[in-house]
């Protein structure tokens, strides 16, 4: 498969969060699954996600938040995407999204309401993220098959 054919995916750790390990592994795994990863690394503000998605014509933004501020940091990203004309882009979010041990179902509901398409709990298998991504892209007619 040529590089230009590969679907582009934006990856980054949002806000003031500097957890880099999972980010590096996610880049490795998603690349290995056949996507082109635009990895913004850690400490990424919302506008950088949006800008990178526009510049690269990415089909999905994968937001990680490991440090508990996710609720504040992630709010409004869907709105920004809409304003920038990429309102239908896939938004995934995962990690330790809130401070303290909370019922994940409540957390998930909250982030779904914020406009995220998929919400992952800590320790999710990366294979599941890849599968979800393939399925969601396929449903939207963006699949490579």
């Amino acid at each position: 498969m040529m590089q230009q054919e590969r679907t582009k995916v934006i990856l980054g750790v949002i806000g003031a969060d500097c957890h880099a390990v999972g980010n590096k592994i996610l880049e490795h795994v998603i690349t290995a699954a056949g996507y082109e990863v635009v990895n913004l690394g850690v400490l990424v503000p919302q506008e950088d996600f949006v800008n990178a998605a526009i510049e690269t014509d990415a089909k999905a933004i994968l937001v990680a938040s490991l440090y508990g501020h996710g609720e504040i940091d992630c709010r409004g990203l869907r709105g920004r995407c809409e304003e920038a004309g990429i309102g239908d882009i896939l938004l995934y979010v995962g990690g330790n999204l809130v401070v303290g041990k909370t019922d994940f179902h409540e957390v998930k509901e909250k982030f779904l309401e914020m406009g995220y398409n998929r919400v992952y709990e800590p320790g999710v298998l990366l294979e599941r993220v890849i599968e979800d991504l393939q399925q969601d892209l396929q449903e939207r007619g963006l699949s490579r098959d």
Partner: peptide
């Protein structure tokens, strides 16, 4: 983490939101 990035305005916001939410944000 906001303070760690010298984002004191965001930290202030976090204090206010925490007061409203009744838990630490």
């Amino acid at each position: 983490s906001y303070t760690r990035q010298n984002q004191y305005a965001e930290a202030e916001n976090g204090i206010e939101e925490s007061k409203r939410a009744g838990r630490s944000l």
